[in-house]
Simulated scan of single mutants.
Amino acid sequence: MRNLSFGQVGLLVILLALLGLTGVWAVAVWNATSDAVMDKHGWIALGLGTFFSLLIGCGLMALMFFSSRSGHDDAADPFRKRREPSAE
C-alpha cells in the first residue's frame, strides 16, 4: 500500500468529519421526533416502500449490467475504442 499524500489525508479528514456530523444530525432528528407514534399501517407502508425501492434499484442495476455485457451500450459511447472480435 502506497503512502497517502497530504491532499488525500485532508480529504479523508473532511469526509470523516462530514460522516460524523451527519450521524450527530441523524441522532438529533431521531430524538426530536421520538414522540411521533406510527401505527401498523405506517409500518406496513414503510416496509412496502423500502422493499419496492430496493426491488426497483436492484432491477435497474441488473438491467444496466446485462446491457453493458451484451454490447447494447457500445453505440452510445462514440469515444470507446472498439475491440476486434477474436478469430476463433
Rank of each mutant, 00 (worst) to 15 (best):
Q8V: 02
F66S: 07
C58D: 05
P85F: 00
N31I: 12
D39F: 12
A62F: 09
E88D: 09
R82N: 10
A87E: 02
A76D: 15
L18K: 08
V29S: 11
D74N: 06
I44G: 00
A75Q: 07
L18P: 04
R69Y: 11
L48D: 00
S70G: 04
G42H: 10
W43H: 08
E84G: 10
R80C: 04
T50R: 00
A32W: 07
M61E: 07
M64N: 05
F79T: 14
A76E: 15
V13P: 00
I56Q: 07
M1I: 00
C58L: 15
D74H: 04
A26G: 02
S5M: 01
A26F: 05
W43N: 01
H72Y: 15
A36R: 09
A28W: 05
M1E: 08
H41Y: 13
L15V: 03
W25A: 15
A75R: 12
F66V: 13
L46E: 00
W30R: 00
A36I: 14
T33Y: 01
S53M: 13
L46H: 00
R2S: 12
R2H: 06
D35E: 07
I44C: 03
Q8N: 04
P85A: 07
A45I: 03
A28Q: 04
A76Q: 15
I56L: 11
H72E: 15
R83I: 14
G49V: 06
L63W: 15
F65W: 13
G57E: 04
W25S: 12
K40H: 13
M64C: 02
A28M: 04
F52Q: 03
F6Q: 08
G23L: 09
I44Y: 04
L55E: 01
R2F: 01
N3C: 01
T50F: 08
S34R: 03
L54P: 05
D74W: 08
S86D: 09
S86T: 11
A75T: 10
H72M: 14
Q8A: 06
L16E: 02
L54T: 00
M64S: 01
R80N: 06
V37L: 08
D35Q: 09
W25H: 06
W25F: 09
M38W: 11
F79N: 14
P85S: 04
S70E: 10
A45R: 02
F65R: 14
D35W: 02
L60T: 05
S86K: 14
V24C: 10
L21P: 01
L15N: 01
G47C: 13
A32T: 03
G57R: 14
D39W: 14
L54C: 07
L18T: 02
K40Q: 12
Q8W: 00
V13T: 08
A17M: 04
G57Y: 09
